[in-house]
């Protein structure tokens, strides 16, 4: 861990904001949805950072902004120190070789009219990496690397099973030899027995190539398996971020605690009898004042309704944004004050 933290981050996201206009009527003032509302984090080389949260928390939008499938409204996305948040389509191209994406739906993320070879060969052609026989041999080795065979080269996506399709998607992402792969729920559409295969494959590839992953997920049990650090999002903001072990052993934010308590355990002797959290995620069009979690929070007090809490360090590398917990934060009190 210490080696990882000493090297400069591969990806640094600073105060990322993504707004969408909501059209109400012709004469009414334009409203905005803040899908992502000031998110900052880093991903180091060889590290897996998991971005977790419930639907509508903005985790997918963060991933899509990093891929520049969505244009951020403000903030910086630095890859190897270069801010790509406001680059034009053409300027983006060299950057796309560094960051690739694996999608949630292995069926819809492959063009049904292209063969496996064409799908994996496309990035090789787009970046002029390899041509002719060289390209073919690279495609073959990519197929083998993700656990598919040479015989799959000429097959179409519909001839593959769900797990095999996801392997194809991973091979396509690997083709340009990226440093970071953004996985947008890459496991959630797969059967459990196949999920484990893909988890192991991703793990293996990380060790082989020193890849970094930004893993967007909602399944906390999977996240614990594969990530080094975890960031928990709620309504467009990160409420807690830290080492996986710390987050799972001693979650700080009441939302993280509730999220962990809600995960059903595959053990009939450990049945959860209480409802961990009441209510549902409010609409991001009209988010609650102050801390967005306060209407569902068992600890909420007056200040939470008025003031957005700022992230505080509770342990080395473990941050959370909560007024109530911050009051009892001994670690912060011990730290020298910095401007």
């Amino acid at each position: 861990m210490s080696e990882l933290s000493s090297s400069p981050p591969l990806l640094q996201v600073d105060d990322l904001i993504v707004r969408y206009p909501v059209k109400k009527g012709l004469l009414q003032p334009r409203k905005h949805v803040h899908a992502v509302n000031g998110v900052s984090f880093t991903v180091r080389r060889g590290e897996t950072l998991a971005l977790v949260g419930e639907s509508g928390c903005g985790k997918t939008t963060v991933g899509r902004s990093i891929m520049r499938l969505v244009r951020p409204s403000s903030g910086a996305i630095r890859v190897d120190g270069i801010d790509v948040a406001s680059l034009s389509r053409r300027q983006l191209k060299p950057y796309r070789r560094k960051i690739q994406m694996v999608f949630q739906d292995p069926y819809a993320s492959l063009n049904p009219r292209m063969t496996a070879g064409e799908i994996i060969g496309e990035p090789l052609g787009n970046f002029g990496i390899a041509h002719g026989a060289d390209r073919e041999s690279r495609i073959m080795s990519l197929l083998e690397r993700v656990g598919l065979g040479r015989s799959h080269f000429h097959r179409y996506p519909h001839e593959f099973s769900g797990g095999q399709r996801q392997r194809l998607g991973i091979a396509r992402a690997l083709a340009v030899e990226p440093s970071l792969i953004v996985g947008d729920e890459p496991l959630s559409a797969l059967d459990v027995s196949v999920q484990a295969q893909i988890v192991n494959l991703l793990d293996h590839l990380q060790q082989e190539f020193g890849l970094s992953y930004l893993f967007i997920a909602h399944d906390l049990a999977v996240v614990q398996q594969i990530s080094h650090r975890v960031a928990v999002m709620y309504l467009g903001r990160i409420v807690e971020i830290g080492e996986t072990a710390d987050i799972f052993r001693a979650p700080i934010h009441p939302y993280t605690q509730a999220l962990l308590a809600a995960v059903p355990l595959p053990d009939p002797r450990k049945r959860r009898t209480i409802e961990p959290l009441r209510g549902e995620v409010p609409s991001p069009i009209s988010p609650p004042s102050g801390c967005a979690f306060h209407p569902r929070c068992p600890l909420a007090e007056d200040r939470c309704r008025r003031e957005v809490p700022r992230a505080q360090e509770f342990q080395a590398g473990h941050f959370a944004a909560c007024h109530v917990m911050a009051r009892n934060n001994q670690y912060a009190a011990l730290q020298p004050v910095t401007a």
């Binding site: 027995s193 999920q195 484990a196 799972f248």
Partner: peptide, 25 residues
């Protein structure tokens, strides 16, 4: 195989190795 494939939430920080089942349905 199915039971060995599901990741289990644990308090410890050791990562379990998931087995999975080779092949597909």
């Amino acid at each position: 195989g199915l039971l060995a494939s599901i990741p289990k939430l644990s308090d410890g920080n050791e990562r379990q190795k998931l087995e999975g089942i080779p092949g597909s349905v």
